[in-house]
């Protein structure tokens, strides 16, 4: 479980492996993630969420909502619309539900699969997904599902960790992210094997231009991306 080979599985097998993997680390996910990215995951999420109009009365779906950091951030920033979160891992959702419940926040949480999203066509103004799509294969089908449930002119915001384009930075990043990160994550979660999956899932994720092509193939318009922190994370954007 959580091995290097798992990052190359597709379909239901991949989904099940990912569900088991996140179930094994759900209670330490928040803290381990922050340490592995040196706290930058929060900044990158803020960049991705800057594309959502905070004062608006719109609808947002967070795919791979996990422990609900995105819904809680939106509420904290004064987002007035409706928020829905979906995730395949029930244990992660339970942590998120508790966080929302403690804060008395109204968010609809759903246990579900990105390939068969349980929403009617044209249901959301925004669909956001952070650090989730590299765990999904084939992502083409997932991107097409997102397009189906977005309203006309709705925006898809996809945030993922990335491989830097600059050669020198890429080498440093490779050493830190592929070696140090899993080592620290392994110690903290007492599950080093599981944490070897995370960097491998990044290596198996398509390049920036490939993702943009997949957006266009799924009939998104005005597709573009924005690199953050020397290209160690990327925000992909596409309008329906």
């Amino acid at each position: 479980m959580g091995s290097v080979e798992d990052a190359y599985l597709t379909g239901d097998k991949r989904t099940e492996k990912v569900r088991i993997f996140f179930s094994s680390i759900y209670d330490k996910y928040d803290i381990t993630n922050k340490i592995m990215t040196f706290g930058l995951d929060i900044y990158w999420r803020t960049v991705a969420l800057s594309y959502i109009s905070m004062g608006s009365n719109k609808s947002v779906l967070d795919i791979g909502t996990g422990t609900c950091d995105i819904p809680l951030y939106l509420i904290k920033k004064g987002f007035k619309g409706s928020i829905t979160g979906i995730d395949i891992t029930r244990d992660m959702l339970k942590v998120g539900y508790k966080k929302l419940y403690t804060n008395k926040k109204k968010v609809n949480l759903i246990e579900g699969n990105v390939f068969t999203l349980p929403f009617k066509d044209e249901s959301f103004d925004y669909v956001i997904s952070a650090y989730t799509f590299r765990n999904i294969s084939p992502i083409d089908d997932a991107i097409a599902e997102v397009n189906r449930i977005l309203k006309k002119s709705g925006l898809f915001i996809l945030l993922e960790i990335s491989i830097p384009t600059n050669e020198v930075i890429r080498e440093i990043h490779k050493k830190v992210f592929l070696k140090v990160g899993p080592y620290i994550g392994g110690i903290l979660s007492k599950n080093e094997e599981a944490y070897s999956y995370l960097p491998q899932s990044l290596l198996s994720f398509p390049a920036r231009n490939e993702i943009i092509k997949k957006f266009y193939l799924a009939k998104f318009k005005n597709c573009r991306y924005r690199d953050c922190t020397l290209g160690t994370a990327t925000v992909f954007l596409g309008n329906k």
């Binding site: 609808s59 829905t84 109204k106 609809n108 759903i110 579900g112 349980p118 929403f119």
Partner: peptide, 14 residues
């Protein structure tokens, strides 16, 4: 879940 979810929720399969 809250009742407003029913406006957009549907069967995952069909």
């Amino acid at each position: 879940m809250y009742r407003d979810l029913l406006k957009i929720l549907c069967c995952s399969s069909c």
